[in-house]
C-alpha cells in the first residue's frame, strides 16, 4: 500500500532522516502484519473450533445410548441420563426390555427397579408401578411415561415415543 503514495519515498528536505524513516517504516509494517495476523488468528480460531462437530451430536435429546446389553443382567434396572431428566431402563427378562421416565408422577422423585418384586418403586412415598408404568399402589396419580427400547447390536438405545 505504501507504493500508492509516491511522496513517502523520499524526504528531500531532510536527507539525514532517511534512515530513521525506513526504520520506522519497517517497525510499522512489522506491527501491522503482526497485529492483523494475530487478530485474524483470534477471529478464525473460534470459527474453526465451531466447525468441529462436538462429541454429542444430537441437539434435542430424543434418543440416548443407555449402555451395553451384555452388561445389564436380566431382572435388573439402571438409571440413565435422558436429556436433563433421569430415565429408568429395565431388563425384565433375557429378551424383554422396558424404559420409562424415572420421574415419579407424585412428587418428582426418581423411581427405581425393585428386583425382589419385579416392580418399579419410588422410595419417597412408596409409590409402586408395574412394568407397563401403571400405578399399582401408593400416591402416584399418573402412570410413568414409557420410552421405546431398541437394540443396536449390543447397544441399548432408548428413545421417546412419537
Amino acid at each position: 500500500m505504501a507504493e500508492a503514495d509516491p511522496h513517502t519515498h523520499t524526504c528531500p528536505d531532510c536527507p539525514n532522516r532517511t534512515g530513521e524513516t525506513s526504520e520506522r517504516r519497517s517497525f510499522v509494517s512489522w506491527l501491522l502484519s503482526g497485529g492483523v495476523a494475530a487478530s485474524l488468528g483470534s477471529f478464525f480460531f473460534p470459527v474453526i473450533r465451531f466447525l468441529n462437530p462436538p462429541h454429542v451430536t444430537e441437539a434435542a435429546v430424543n434418543e440416548i445410548a443407555a449402555g451395553k446389553a451384555s452388561q445389564i443382567k436380566p431382572n435388573s434396572g439402571r438409571i440413565v441420563k435422558f436429556g436433563n431428566k433421569p430415565a429408568l431402563l429395565v431388563r425384565a427378562t433375557e429378551t424383554e426390555w422396558r424404559a420409562f421416565s424415572a420421574v415419579c408422577t407424585h412428587l418428582n422423585c426418581t423411581v427405581q427397579y425393585q428386583e425382589s418384586s419385579s416392580q418399579i418403586w419410588c422410595a419417597c412415598h412408596n409409590g409402586v408401578y408395574d412394568l407397563n408404568g401403571r400405578v399399582v399402589s401408593g400416591p402416584p396419580p399418573k402412570p410413568l411415561e414409557e420410552y421405546a427400547v431398541k437394540l443396536r447390536g449390543d447397544e441399548v438405545v432408548i428413545s421417546k415415543r412419537a
Binding site: P46, V47, R49, F50, N52, P54, V56, E58, A59, A60, V61
Partner: peptide
C-alpha cells in the same frame, strides 16, 4: 434445544 446445544456443546458456540 438446538440453540442450547450451540451454546453449551459446540465450542465457541
Amino acid at each position: 434445544d438446538s440453540v442450547r446445544f450451540i451454546m453449551t456443546k459446540v465450542e465457541f458456540g
